[in-house]
């Protein structure tokens, strides 16, 4: 399968702490890849490196054949940040139309995305007056409106009710079906089952990669939560063993 995002020996230091320890992975084109891991494991840092706003210490990130962050990529990538980044002193419609305009898209596209994320009724409302879930969806709409080839979504379904979550995942599936590459971080294992491929990350290192079924069968469990735990224990046992030998 063709690669959309190639990460090679990526090391990132934030403050005095090394957050990513020389990780390498490939994200295939046209599928949904889930990035799973506990809070503080380096998911957001990896995303920031992919969209090109993170200073990296060493290693490379290549997106669609170009170095991450290059000017051309900024027309082809969409980024949804974990804490919603929209203008709270503008209405939903003004926000989405603004982000659409940066990609030379008009009001019609903006209005249709607002409907898709279920904010049609709130379109004229100031973002500061929205509920937490609506606020996030307004931010998501700003990422979706540009029809990016690569969509980087950091916890896009947090705080959404089950019905909306279902709809959003259908929408992600639909986008992948039309050739977009999606990388979605989550800590809900139920959502991990909906991904085509998974990257499990913990403490800045990749614990395992593979499809949900592959990971489940490798660890001999039907439950991804359990699978993750077993992989972590395996890794800890191995590193403990390594220390004894040294």
């Amino acid at each position: 399968m063709e690669t959309a995002i190639e990460v090679r020996d990526l090391t990132v230091v934030r403050g005095a702490r090394e957050v990513l320890h020389g990780i390498s992975t490939d994200v295939p084109r046209g599928v949904i890849t889930g990035l799973l891991g506990p809070s503080g494991s380096g998911k957001t840092t990896l995303f920031r490196a992919i969209v090109g706003v993170q200073i990296v210490s060493s290693g490379t990130v290549t997106v669609l054949g170009k170095p991450a962050g290059s000017a051309e990529l900024r027309r082809r990538i969409g980024y949804y940040t974990q804490s919603p980044s929209v203008y709270t002193d503008l209405t939903v419609r003004e926000n989405v139309r603004y982000f659409a305009s940066l990609h030379s898209l008009g009001a019609a596209e903006a209005d249709s995305v607002i409907r898709e994320v279920g904010l049609a009724e709130q379109a004229g409302q100031m973002v500061s007056t929205l509920s937490g879930g609506q606020h996030s969806r307004a931010s998501l709409a700003c990422a979706l409106v540009t029809h990016p080839e690569v969509l980087v979504l950091d916890e896009p379904t947090v705080g959404q009710d089950p019905v909306l979550r279902e709809e959003l995942w259908e929408r992600f599936r639909d986008l992948a079906g039309r050739g977009a590459t999606l990388v979605v971080s989550s800590h809900i294992m139920d959502e991990a089952n909906r991904c085509d491929g998974l990257i499990l990350i913990r403490e800045g290192s990749i614990v395992a990669e593979g499809g949900p079924d592959e990971i489940k069968s490798r660890t001999g469990t039907d439950d991804l939560d359990q699978a993750f735990l077993r992989l972590v224990r395996e890794q800890d046992a191995e590193s403990g063993h390594g220390k004894e030998v040294a």
Binding site: V51, G52, V53, A71, R74, R75, I77, G78, Y79, T81, S83, P84, S85, V86, Y87, T88, F99, L102, H103, C142, T146
Partner: peptide
Amino acid sequence: TSGTLERLFTTPV
């Protein structure tokens, strides 16, 4: 501080 600047820097702005 609101994250919009970082977001803008992932767009053609």
